[in-house]
């Protein structure tokens, strides 16, 4: 404490300004982290031991979209995408999430590098026809934003294991399902690069920034 006192007020101010500038620069160029569980393997390359990190990767999938077309992981090949889980008759957080996702959609509309995949967690009710009408009523046309349905266990499996997002049936929850309000950002290598709160404006703005910074990464 004594040494701090000796520095003097003006020097302290300078110190904080410098620190502030440093952290400012830092956040400007910060790369998004890779999220999820990871593993390490050691292998020999040219006689030397090299350790490789294996990141959580989104596996292959097969679902059906709002046009009744079969959709696999090929649809997001060489694209970055945002994904979430919802159901059309949801009375709680989904309307907010869809309102927020609409902002993301409008921000990156017609950008061929960006897609949105929204999975229903109530496939029994949310058939392709139901999803088609929902998308239209939301004002979404074209194929940039896909509304996906499929076998319930496959949807829950990819949600829980790959996208690290809770999605399950729960008769006691309002609407009958429990799910998180997360928007998940996936890069071209199929790594999770960000998870955002899709029920808030703050989370949505962070996601938009995240997408922009990820797009920048691929420009280089």
């Amino acid at each position: 404490m004594r040494s701090l006192g000796n520095i003097g007020y003006s020097k302290l101010v300078v110190l904080f300004v410098v620190l502030g500038l440093m952290s400012g620069c830092d956040s400007g160029n910060k790369k998004l982290p890779i999220l999820g569980e990871r593993d390490w393997v050691t292998k020999k390359v040219d006689g030397k031991e090299v350790t490789d990190t294996i990141y959580n990767v989104i596996p292959t999938f097969t679902f059906t979209n709002q046009y009744g077309d079969t959709v696999t992981e090929k649809i997001v090949k060489d694209k970055i995408y945002v994904t979430d889980f919802f159901f059309t008759s949801c009375p709680t957080i989904c309307p907010v999430m869809k309102r927020q996702m609409l902002k993301v959609y409008k921000e990156f509309k017609d950008n061929p590098d960006v897609m949105i995949l929204s999975h229903t967690i109530d496939p029994e009710h949310d058939t392709p026809q139901v999803l088609n009408k929902f998308a239209k009523d939301l004002g979404v046309e074209g194929k940039q934003w896909q509304f996906l349905t499929g076998p319930k266990e496959k949807i829950y499996e990819i949600g829980q294991k790959s996208y690290l997002s809770a999605a399950q049936e729960d008769r006691t929850a309002e609407g009958g399902f429990l799910h998180s309000g997360a928007f998940i950002l996936i890069d071209k290598e199929k790594h999770i690069r960000g998870m955002y709160d899709g029920t808030t404006e703050e989370g949505t703005q962070k996601l938009i920034q995240g997408i922009k910074s990820l797009l920048e990464e691929y420009k280089k």
């Binding site: 009375p91 957080i93 309307p95 907010v96 869809k98 309102r99 009523d137 939301l138 004002g139």
Partner: peptide, 15 residues
Amino acid sequence: ANCHQADGKGMANLY
């Protein structure tokens, strides 16, 4: 407000 929105304007053709 979840559906009808805080400004009472509803949401597209959904609500």
